[in-house]
Amino acid sequence: MLSIKNLHASVEDKEILKGLNLEVKAGEVHAIMGPNGAGKSSLASVLAGRENYEVTEGTVTLDGKDILELAPEDRAREGVFLAFQYPIEIPGVSNINFLKTAMNEIRTYRGEAPLTAKEFLQRSREKQELVEFDAKLVNRSLNEGFSGGEKKRNEIFQLAMLEPKLAILDETDSGLDIDALRIVSRGVNKLRGGNNAFILITHYQRLLDYIVPDFVHVLADGKIIKTGGKELALELEEKGYDWLTKN
């Protein structure tokens, strides 16, 4: 599925990712943890194609395809999805129209016919239920005036609608109350399958009680410095990162 080799990337001439390696196979869930400012969101941004990041070295392929060559929209169409740490508000763009446009552009790219209004509505209802996303929010302007938790839930609603191959969740659990966390996790667990993969960026091992990862990685100073199973998260919770970075 996803293969990252020796990835170096900088923003405004400052090197943030410094030779990062990561292999994610279909069906797997990977958690990435690490101190503030380590480069976790930067990795997500580079994968999604944010323009101010410059890749200076290394490769990223998705099912063998070089995605660094692609525009952000084409990466999305190839199946990359980023649930943002800070989803932006876009007044005047209706949530549902936006999703319909996104969905149909992705389908067109893949040579599929656009969904009929009825099909779209049905799917939207189904997924709203799955992530318990308030129907009133669906028709509002994109994230405008949403609470922090509502924004995060909207990200997961979009994820459910678009069914990407590779979903990267950047601190989706931060700012969620315990019920919301359970709902979002249940959504993700339902969406988990043999053909897709998840990267969960998080600071809290609590999330990993709900979504059990296959691997836990520690990202520090632009590199993956340790990889383990789900028990690594518990160890990190207890000991912090110092024991890993100090040597």
Binding site: A48, G49, R50, E51, A71, P72, E73, R75, A76, R77, F81, L82, F84, P87, I88, I90, P91, G92, V93, N97, F98, L99, T101, A102, M103, E105, I106, Y109, S141, Q158, L162
Partner: peptide
């Protein structure tokens, strides 16, 4: 960028924003 990251092309994205 948000719109593009959901698969919406440059032109469509600008169009949505201008309309908004």
């Amino acid at each position: 960028f948000y719109l593009k990251s959901r698969g919406i092309g440059e032109t469509q994205a600008k169009q949505l924003m201008v309309k908004a």
